[in-house]
Design a protein around this nucleic acid. Structure first.
Lengths: 189, 189
DNA sequence: AGTGAATTGTTCGAAAACCAACATTGGATT
DNA sequence: AATCCAATGTTGGTTTTCGAACAATTCACT
């Protein structure tokens, strides 16, 4: 049942080469032959794993979307409760392994495969659910507040992906301030 | 006649993993199973390529020794003629790809496989031949001069391997001064 | 619109890698 | 000295990958 090591290795090689190529070339201009050449894989093997380059992209986007989805529940609570330090540290850890891949895939926006859009959509859904729970008495449209919260979180995520963990000075305070401002809009008093 | 891509890949994987392990563990304590586990290769495949871990080490040492031998003639002339800039730049380029491997292998000293010793021996032979050509009239033992020249070059090589190309400030002048001092000892006047 | 080159996607026999099992060796422990 | 355990090599059947060839499609250029 568990996959053959060779399959794991070729998929790893293809994906690494693919991400590498994406840093220098647009997705549309990358050919299957390019990916195979860069990863020392034969084309017939590529097609044994993926239907085409779109399938490769979609599987990668689906994978990282799933990884992110698994973390969202935990992390989301943290921006509500204000545990910013833990949030930022946790996000850094989550992103550390996949930093290069996620950073690169964030630049690709295909109709069927848009990692950045997926992240956004997940967060937005979370915020909408959260706000609905609070049943707030406010004039501000709830969808606007949800969009604001999502944007703040996405900006933080993108910032961490860009700069890595080391440079976290000042980030904590800034995000904390903004978080409070957003939450104030749904105060149910 | 040309090797199958799969052979190239597995040998690359095994060697990379081996060097990686060498940075944390002594050669004696590294097992074949360790190398295979780290490189996602099966043990039977390892033995299809190498007799044992000593064979792996020896083949790598032989390889880098051969690469170095190919460059020695060119580079050696440069330290005589005083073209230090070209020498240092060339050495950096030569070492760039193999930097990590050579740097690591330099720490391993097995009876049948000692890269550092091989480099030394090649340079020493070159110096001895060069000095003999000059048939110098000097009181200083020629073997001593050869040993001095060899040491200067080895020190430069090790310095570049340690620090990489970027930090070359001041190196050129220092080596140039020492080179002149060594050459003065075999002045045939 | 028409032509040629490049890319795609598929097929199949040969080569390589995998895995599990096995006997053998070498070192540490009691 | 006897025992245990980990590491070494070896083997054979299975799976995957490779490479080269092929037709089909797309694209650039005239």
């Amino acid at each position: 049942m568990t996959k053959d090591v060779r399959k794991i290795k070729t998929e790893r090689d293809l994906q690494v080469a693919f991400v590498q190529l994406l840093t220098t070339t647009g997705f549309r201009h990358i050919t299957v032959a390019d990916i195979c050449q860069a990863s020392l894989t034969s084309r017939s093997t590529f097609y044994a794993h993926y239907l085409d380059k779109y399938d490769l992209l979609e599987q990668m986007v689906a994978h990282y979307s799933a990884v992110f989805a698994n973390r969202v529940d935990l992390r989301f609570n943290q921006i509500i409760t204000g545990d910013i330090d833990t949030l930022v540290a946790g996000l850094s850890v989550d992103m550390a392994e996949n930093r290069v891949a996620v950073q690169t895939l964030f630049t690709v926006h295909e109709p069927e495969a848009d990692l950045q859009a997926n992240f956004r959509a997940m967060l937005l859904k979370k915020w909408q659910g959260f706000i609905a729970e609070q049943a707030p008495q406010t004039d501000t449209p709830t969808d606007l507040i949800a969009a604001m919260g999502t944007s703040v979180q996405m900006t933080l995520i993108e910032w961490i992906i860009q700069h890595g963990e080391p440079a976290l000075g000042g980030v904590t305070d800034a995000v904390d301030t903004i978080r409070k401002a957003v939450l104030l809009q749904i105060k149910t008093d």
